[in-house]
Design a protein around this nucleic acid. Structure first.
Lengths: 219, 219
DNA sequence: GTCTATATATCGATAGAC
DNA sequence: GTCTATCGATATATAGAC
């Protein structure tokens, strides 16, 4: 599976990964990875614990040694999904040179978020797909994470608008939902045959920022 | 509930709607309306036949007099959803004056599709939400409808591009998915508090066609 | 046609052997 | 820690009365 979970922080723990005693931790990871994989493809309802068990190469009942319920497992997959995307976006924004203009920051965030979904993380995909499908109490556990991440986008748009770099006649709330929604839907359709992630992301940022209409021919 | 199902054709059948003998048909409609209502809010997995029955003011078992299975009911809701959107979009395109340019046609289609979702049809909403959630054989039954509708969009974009009205540097397939995806996601977030449908649709078409960047100040 | 009552299947969850 | 076996809850679907 691809890299996920704890992406950028704590890369070094100083311990080898296979000392005796963390066989449990490794199985737990395998279950989570399998769950993210299956959830992102089948959604919540069509995913059986037996499907996850099969991918994780374990028997269904054994999952309960690591998780107290299907919902707890689901909640952790979702939490990892937002957390990963949040941290990856923030890290890339922090890498930008001091004084980078707000439009570039917005464009960067769009690029990174979309790439998290289409090429970087099963967890990000799973979380996007599961949002709106899971029972209310799971959604409730999760909504503060989503809200925190949503705030990043509110600020990105607000800052760019405050600079006068964005058109002033559009409602930023709706715009934010359209941008995030268009990216979210990529979970439903994107496959490698649709072209490299970089080119898909490029086309998307171009459309969002500059629109689809051809510029007047240079004379 | 709102108007749906058979929107534009066959408005007159020449029969009063309550002659004896079509009590059945009316109950069937009530069940379908209820199903569209519940599905569009809770999705496939969280929707119980008992939820639908409650909204339809009928007992759960009675549904089976009208539909042979939950899946048959689901499939009909989805079929009505695409069909409604397809016909509503086509009807509006046909109303445009002869010789209307392809960019205006594209813009019109976006406006109508989005309005179908946010203000016109529970069926359209339900279909959008259910896509990607339902079991494979339902999806399979349904995919030819979706493909046919997808072809409308392929053509709209292709025609506008052929005219030179669209930028030539973007992949139209990905662009199509982004546009439809952004609209689809409205099912997850749109509420009347987000403003009138007309204004949301306006902001969306503006972003898609002209982008978010502020035009240079007139001098 | 719609009801009540019930059969059947599925799946999440638990118990206990190893 | 992971297995097998099974329980129990839920919900689709059916049978039969009215």
């Amino acid at each position: 599976m691809d890299n996920t979970g704890t992406p950028l922080d704590e890369e070094e723990k100083g311990e080898p990964t296979d000392i005796p005693g963390n066989k449990s931790a490794k199985t737990r990871e395998r279950i989570l990875d399998a769950a993210a994989f299956v959830f992102s493809r089948k959604g919540f309802s069509r995913t059986r614990l037996s499907d996850i068990a099969k991918v994780a190469e374990i028997k269904t009942g054994s999952i309960y040694y690591h998780f107290s319920s299907r919902e707890e497992l689901t909640a952790e997959v979702m939490a990892r999904g937002v957390s990963y995307t949040y941290r990856t976006v923030m890290a890339r924004l922090d890498e930008l040179p001091e004084g980078t203009d707000n439009l570039t920051r917005l464009k960067t965030a769009i690029d990174v978020h979309l790439r998290c979904l289409i090429e970087r993380s099963e967890y990000a995909r799973a979380n996007t797909k599961l949002n709106g499908q899971v029972p209310k109490h799971i959604q409730a556990l999760h909504s503060s994470n989503e809200a925190k991440y949503g705030e990043v986008w509110r600020k990105l748009l607000r800052d760019a608008a405050a600079n006068g770099q964005l058109r002033q006649d559009l409602n930023l709330s709706a715009i934010r939902m359209f941008i995030l929604g268009a990216m979210s839907w990529s979970v439903e359709w994107y496959k490698p045959e649709n072209g490299p992630a970089a080119s898909v992301a490029h086309d998307f940022t171009e459309m969002i920022l500059n629109g689809l209409i051809a510029p007047p021919p240079a004379t």
